[in-house]
Amino acid sequence: MNKLPQITLAFWVMKICATTLGETAGDLLSMTLNVGYAVSSMILISVFVLTLLTQLFSKTYNPVLYWLVILSTSTAGTTMSDFMDRTLGLGYATGSLILVSILVAIFALWKWSGESLNVSQVQTPRGEMFYWMAILFSNTLGTALGDYLADDSGLGFAGGALFIGATIAVVVLARYFTKISSVVLFWVAFVLTRPFGATLGDFLTKPPEKGGLDFGTIGSSLVLAGILVAMIAGAAYLKNKQTRPGVAELS
Results as ranks from 00 to 15, higher is better:
T178W: 05
G127Y: 06
L28A: 09
K111S: 10
L204R: 03
P245T: 01
T8Q: 07
F137K: 03
S41A: 15
K59D: 07
L141K: 02
A225D: 06
I106P: 00
T20F: 03
A230D: 07
G91N: 03
T51Q: 09
N34H: 15
A174T: 09
Y92S: 00
S251D: 12
R194P: 01
V119L: 13
A174H: 00
Q6G: 12
V183N: 05
A134S: 09
G219L: 08
V119K: 02
S58T: 13
V171S: 13
R126H: 02
I135W: 02
V223I: 15
Q6H: 14
M80F: 13
L4A: 10
C17S: 15
A169K: 11
S182R: 11
T20S: 13
G91K: 05
T94Q: 11
L71C: 08
D147V: 01
F130L: 06
V47A: 10
V35A: 15
T124Q: 05
A225P: 04
T19C: 06
Q6F: 02
S96L: 06
T32S: 14
G89C: 04
D214R: 07
G234V: 12
F157G: 00
G36D: 10
T199N: 09
Y37G: 04
R194E: 06
G142P: 05
V183E: 04
R244F: 12
S74H: 08
N2Q: 08
S181K: 08
Y131G: 01
F163S: 10
V183D: 12
V191N: 07
R126V: 14
G114R: 09
A198Q: 08
L149E: 00
S251T: 13
S72G: 05
S81P: 04
I135Y: 01
F190G: 00
A233F: 14
M42H: 04
A134Q: 00
W187E: 02
G201P: 03
V172W: 10
I7W: 03
T217N: 14
N118K: 08
L53G: 03
V104S: 04
A144S: 14
V64A: 14
L71K: 02
M84A: 09
T167H: 00
L185M: 09
V170F: 07
L204I: 11
W112Q: 15
D147A: 02
G216S: 08
M14H: 05
W112S: 12
S40T: 15
Y148K: 01
K239Y: 06
F186D: 06
M80C: 14
M129R: 09
T75S: 13
V172A: 11
I45Y: 11
S113G: 11
V191S: 12
T73W: 06
K179Y: 08
L9G: 10
L56M: 14
M84L: 15
R244Q: 14
A18Q: 08
